[in-house]
């Protein structure tokens, strides 16, 4: 895994609960303990009500492709070796969208907007795991 050359997330105190979940192969959605709203991406203060009493809910890991693109040109290290690859917003069954990759399809053109997907976890390094999705 030492040869992972794509950008890695920087983990801060504010977001470590999310990334710790990923490392344990559990997708966690931030949820405000005061107003009960879900949101994404994770942040330490609720963007619905500005409460700092933010917790996490375990996600089902299931969702649908809201929108997507199949990227054919990217000269950045790592990505250039994976062309074409899928970027997508996935709407989780819990109702929030997250930006991600859809991986694991034999042909990326088999994946369509509206398709059912489920989370998979890519262990990028010993410390960092990145959640992605595959066709369900």
């Amino acid at each position: 895994m030492a040869d992972y050359v794509k950008p890695l997330p920087t983990i801060s105190d504010e977001t470590k609960t999310y990334w710790e979940g990923c490392k344990a192969h559990e997708l966690r959605i931030p949820k405000c303990n005061d107003c009960s709203e879900l949101f994404f991406p994770p942040q330490g203060v609720c963007p619905h009500c500005l409460s700092d009493n933010v917790g996490y809910q375990k996600a089902s890991g299931k969702g649908t492709v809201y929108s997507m693109s199949i990227v054919h040109q990217n000269r950045s290290p790592g990505f250039r070796d994976e062309l074409p690859y899928i970027i997508a917003y996935v709407t989780l069954d819990e109702g929030v969208q997250m930006f991600t990759n859809v991986v694991g399809a034999d042909d990326p053109y088999q994946v369509k907007v509206g398709a059912a997907v489920e989370v998979v976890f890519e262990d990028a390094t010993d410390e960092i795991t990145i959640p992605k999705f595959k066709p369900a």
């Binding site: 997330p9 920087t10 983990i11 950045s76 930006f99 992605k132």
Partner: peptide, 17 residues
């Protein structure tokens, strides 16, 4: 590979958008 900020880029840049 850039060093990316914890929020929001860490939730986007790893995916090559």
């Amino acid at each position: 590979r850039p060093v990316i900020n914890p929020w929001p880029d860490s939730f986007e840049a790893p995916y090559g958008g």
